[in-house]
């Protein structure tokens, strides 16, 4: 378990190494720190959005060891030792990923708030299953809500990116 440091007020903090987008960050977090807040506030990776914060909407989706999870439902201390990918890690070297390009080409973005989560769910799907059916795409993004209701173009964008393989 992570090293525990208790301050003068008796508040316990845990020393963790968090691997995010290939970089390891050494951080002090409280037991109740949620991964989404540590990403946004400590690491300033604000591409990960906060929506419902209850695991329903998928705005805060990140990949943990390649699997999409809601970062609002994960304690930061429990993310130690896992490889975290946020939207900032999808396009290294300032070149957009082909899935991101596909979202632009298909106008699969309206307000944009669900987009980071959609891209990460789509990315996880295409990594596991490079040629999904429409049904499989819809299933894979069913935990990501788009309140602009732009699902048709989002599904098209993911399918088109899969055909570029």
């Amino acid at each position: 378990m992570a090293q525990v440091i208790t301050d003068a007020q008796g508040v316990k903090r845990y020393l963790i190494n968090l691997s995010v987008n290939g970089d390891t960050h050494t951080l002090m977090v409280k037991g109740n720190s949620l991964l989404v807040n540590v990403l946004r506030e400590d690491l300033e990776l604000t591409g990960t959005k906060k929506g419902c914060e209850l695991g329903d909407c998928g705005s805060c989706t990140v990949l943990m060891d390649g699997k999409p999870v809601n970062s609002c439902m994960v304690l930061a201390v429990e993310a130690e030792g896992r490889a975290i990918t946020t939207i900032e890690g999808v396009a290294p070297n300032d070149k957009l990923d082909k899935l991101q390009e596909s979202f632009i080409d298909h106008a699969a973005i309206q307000c944009g708030y669900c987009t980071p989560g959609m891209i990460l769910s789509g990315k996880a799907l295409l990594t596991r299953n490079p040629h999904p059916t429409e049904e499989e795409v819809r299933e894979a993004i069913s935990g990501n809500l788009c309140r602009c209701t732009g699902y048709v173009n989002i599904v098209k964008a993911i399918l088109a990116a899969s055909e570029q393989e």
Binding site: M1, A2, V11, K12, Y14, K30, G31, N32, L34, N37, K50, E53, L54, C72, L75, V77, E78
Partner: peptide, 13 residues
Amino acid sequence: MYLPDFDYYAPDS
């Protein structure tokens, strides 16, 4: 939305 404070333990057994 934040969680209330608690002491966290992750035992090995």
